[in-house]
Design a protein around this nucleic acid. Structure first.
Length: 271
DNA sequence: CGCCAGGCCTGCACGC
DNA sequence: TGCGTGCAGGCCTGGC
């Protein structure tokens, strides 16, 4: 279930293997992801060179001279590098073969992910055009968050998970960032002071950075690994801890539902 | 067996 | 009218 740190780690793992390489072939075993994988992708990519790989929100972008391959891991997707001819296992829907024998393989049991092709300005792509700032870039500041949440009655947790507000903050890290900031997830976003916005901005970056750092240490297993990527086994303060004592104060961690998703918080530490 | 997990798009209802 | 906002539904399968 990739959140931004997993996507970033995937990017860092893939980029050295793919950048500068020429595509030999594309294999689509099952095109039925969130949107169909374009059937003409093999013809589009064969012989073309990967110029650059980068990330916007949770979209992985593989740039060619004539367009961009957009990859999204959805909820259960993972990408890994293989060499030689590895037989495909169930749920391994898509391969990008390079002329040097390297193979990038997409596995996505739940098929919420996506493989798309876009020609022209990638920033104009419908899926990318209306995204908010990257949480780890300098545009995401306390002042920005403060301004963007004024008069908003929605719960702060829902808003920091909203890609128009800031991208890449999934359920786990939203819960953890709010705990670290001492902010109750149900609090109406518009009621946050500027100071608390600044703090939340800071803790959001902290939890994401810490997770990326953890992910980096598992990168050595990237090639020819068994492919089990999953979450980095990080110690969470509140996520998944309903009924357990808060690690900070001992109060029982509560679980509620917001926007059909589980929220966890400490009623004592978070106000 | 049924339910839940999760990202994120789409569509609906509402109010200014 | 049109937009921003706030909800809810839907897509999937593995694991409990």
């Amino acid at each position: 279930m990739p959140e931004l740190p997993e996507v970033e780690t995937t990017l860092r793992g893939l980029a050295p293997h793919l950048t500068g390489q020429q595509v030999g072939d594309v294999i689509i075993r099952n095109p039925r992801l969130r949107w169909p994988i374009p059937a003409d992708l093999p013809e589009l990519l064969r012989g073309h060179t990967i110029r650059r790989m980068w990330r916007r929100a949770k979209y992985l972008l593989v740039e060619f001279d004539h367009g961009t391959l957009i990859l999204h891991l959805g909820m259960s997707g993972s990408l890994r590098i293989l060499t030689g001819s590895a037989p495909a296992l169930p749920h391994e829907h898509f391969d990008l073969l390079l002329q040097n024998g390297t193979l990038m393989r997409l596995r996505d049991p739940r098929r919420f992910g996506a493989v798309l092709w876009h020609e022209g300005d990638i920033a104009a792509h419908p899926q990318l055009a209306s995204l908010g700032p990257e949480p780890l870039e300098k545009e995401f500041t306390g002042d920005y968050l403060y301004a963007a949440t004024r008069k908003r009655k929605a719960a702060i947790k829902l808003l920091i998970m909203d890609n128009h507000m800031v991208v890449g903050v999934g359920n786990i890290y939203a819960n953890e960032a709010l705990f670290r900031a001492g902010i109750k997830p149900q609090l109406a976003a518009g009621k946050l002071s500027r100071e608390r916005c600044t703090l939340l901005c800071k803790t959001t970056r902290e939890v994401l950075r810490a997770a990326i750092k953890k992910g980096g240490s598992s990168l050595r297993d990237y090639v020819d690994s068994d492919g089990k990527q999953g979450y980095f086994q990080q110690e969470y303060f509140v996520y998944g801890k309903a009924g357990e004592p808060c690690r900070r104060c001992g109060t029982t961690v509560k679980q509620i539902r917001q926007g059909q998703r589980a929220s966890f918080y400490c009623p004592h530490c978070q106000r």
